[in-house]
Design a protein around this nucleic acid. Structure first.
Lengths: 149, 149
DNA sequence: CGCAACTCAGTTGTGCACAACTAAATCGAG
DNA sequence: CTCGATTTAGTTGTGCACAACTGAGTTGCG
């Protein structure tokens, strides 16, 4: 029987940790003129270019309400281009521009900086990642059972 | 040497977990007409009433840019009242209204719902909380060393 | 074939999160 | 005592997140 007082120490811890990490990224990404969500999109595109908006949304768990304006900003910044698909005019394919591809070089050092800041060894990272993924799965399953989409 | 590909699986996992939990709270808090950050403020006030805005900000790690409009909404909803301090006109004390106190009853079941959804035993909760706190500390310390306030 | 159901991207509106700033009140060194 | 530095809450502007909706395009059932 969790109390109103203690309950949130885990949820709040998660919320605090997430904001702390985002805030570190803010400093680190200042150089690249990217926000953290924009960086996530760039990571996805560096890994595999020419993605549909839909695919990016599935991978990052973001809907078009978040992605559309974000992608518009990335396009304005000259990092990506968007093209309606000829074979399915509903879809839009997002591709890296030369500047977008080039930015990858500037991003190379970021993972190590973040890793150092977290001061976790590989095993710690792996364990935490596994626990967070399990938590996300469990919480999402519960929510979907509670409020069916 | 972390790669641009793998790096973010932990940071992204944190980001995804945090959004998943918030999204569960959205469903659970619908009944109380509260958002998750508003619920955190109410939790803080249920624990100790009559707090200064400054104190709430310290406890929740939120600045006045976030708290001021949030508290204004809570006041409009009739859950809190704000009063300038007589002895220090800069400060504002936030107090629960009767409706705000009464809402606590409706919130009583929430911790158990969230606990169940996370499907973690007490030891798991404690361990995760400790790890998240350590992570937050470490990341914040690193960021502050990098970009002194 | 025809059209209703669905899909996809985008828009609108609300509420955080946070940087940068303002204005008023208080403090403290000289 | 005075005036510059600091503290406190609030405002403004930007960018997520997300619900609800729109509109164009596609699909598939009868």
């Amino acid at each position: 029987m969790a109390s109103l007082r203690l309950d949130d120490q885990l949820c709040f811890g998660l919320y605090a940790a997430s904001r702390a990490v985002t805030s570190l990224y803010r400093v680190v990404l200042e150089d690249l003129d990217l926000t953290y969500p924009q960086y996530l999109v760039m990571l996805a595109l560096w890994e595999q270019d020419h993605r549909l908006v839909k695919e990016l949304g599935t991978e990052l768990n973001l809907d078009s309400g978040t992605l559309s304006p974000l992608l518009k900003r990335l396009q304005t910044a000259g990092l990506v281009v968007r093209n309606r698909q000829a074979d399915d005019e509903r879809s839009v394919r997002v591709s890296l521009s030369d500047a977008g591809k080039a930015l990858r070089e500037k991003a190379k050092g970021i993972p190590d900086v973040i890793g150092t800041a977290m001061s976790l060894d590989d095993a710690g990272v792996a364990r935490m990642r596994a626990e967070l993924n399990r938590l996300t799965e469990s919480v999402n399953a519960y929510r979907e059972a509670m409020a069916p989409a």
